[in-house]
């Protein structure tokens, strides 16, 4: 078990209840998306994972360590947190210095160079190592921020709204970087409003509303509008499912295409259903 929260509550000063009885377990290598409206408690939950917030009640365990008894610096070796705004993380004069920042205190020069090389190759940033990070575009800055975390080799990656505010090219760059990290077997937790991204990549979706977890399942079950339970969860969390889900639902129920499956959530799956004549019926 990589992460476990047990009956987690968090109350901010001013008696603002941000989390209420959140109990989740996340296994090693899982790709989990946390979705919900702004203020639903997603970021508060994520900030508990690296110890930046401590539970008001309940417990959070990261690789068996109770975050109450571990400090952020210690947990940062296990949990890498990539902030929404990369400008909050970057401060060095070159990309290379930025990546090497955390390593210099931990590893020898040779090991540092080796780690840097691996990370640079994984994120394909060989050409910009001597560039000032602040002169780069937003998506590239995000990739540098991710690379700066990756170089520390945490086992868990928490990404706060990685695709927000990106153009198509930027989004694809970031998606590719996240998938590369995921392929390494890292546990990925993505906080996002981008349901298309969730449908394409997440293996599990945790839906939050008003500080509670109201849904926790595979994306195709969460976005299956023919299921009343899933529909209620989406309505309560005020989440619109991916367009493909809406289209599948409309084909099935509005256009009466009787055998069209309603758990189709990505364009690829949609094309697959159409092209392989799964629609053919009596």
């Amino acid at each position: 078990m990589m992460i476990e929260t047990r009956n987690l509550y968090h109350v901010y000063p001013g008696n603002v209840q941000a989390l209420e009885d959140v109990s989740i377990k996340i296994d090693e290598g899982e790709f989990t998306a946390i979705v919900g409206q702004n203020g639903s408690g997603k970021t508060t939950l994520a900030l508990h994972l690296n110890g930046l917030l401590k539970p008001t009640k309940g417990d959070v365990f990261v690789k068996g360590k109770n975050t109450r008894n571990s400090d952020v610096e210690e947990l940062s070796k296990i949990v890498g947190y990539v902030y929404q705004n990369p400008n909050h993380q970057l401060f060095n004069l070159t990309v290379k210095q930025e990546l090497a920042f955390g390593l210099k205190r931990l590893l020898s020069k040779e090991e540092t160079e080796k780690r840097l090389k691996e990370t640079v190759e994984l994120f394909s940033i060989q050409d910009i190592l001597d560039v000032n990070p602040f002169s780069l575009s937003l998506p590239v800055k995000k990739i540098i921020a991710m690379a700066a975390i990756h170089v520390m080799r945490p086992e868990i990656f928490v990404l706060d709204e990685p695709t927000t505010g990106q153009d198509f090219v930027g989004m694809k760059l970031i998606e590719k970087a996240i998938l590369n990290v995921s392929r390494e077997g890292k546990t990925i937790i993505v906080i996002t409003h981008d349901m298309g991204f969730v449908a394409r990549h997440a293996k599990r979706v945790i839906v939050m509303a008003e500080g509670r977890v109201i849904g926790d399942d595979e994306p195709k079950k969460i976005f299956d509008l023919s299921n009343n339970g899933a529909k209620r969860v989406l309505q309560e969390a005020r989440i619109s499912p991916p367009h493909v889900s809406l289209l599948s639902y409309a084909l099935r129920f509005d256009c009466n295409v009787q055998r069209f499956p309603t758990d189709v959530i990505t364009p690829t799956q949609f094309a697959d259903v159409v092209c392989t004549h799964k629609l053919r019926g009596p």
């Binding site: 930046l52 940062s76 070796k77 949990v79 947190y81 902030y83 909050h88 955390g102 520390m152």
Partner: peptide, 11 residues
């Protein structure tokens, strides 16, 4: 927020 971001990086 920045201080927290840096702490999350192991500072």
């Amino acid at each position: 927020m920045i201080l927290n971001a840096q702490r999350a990086r192991g500072v």
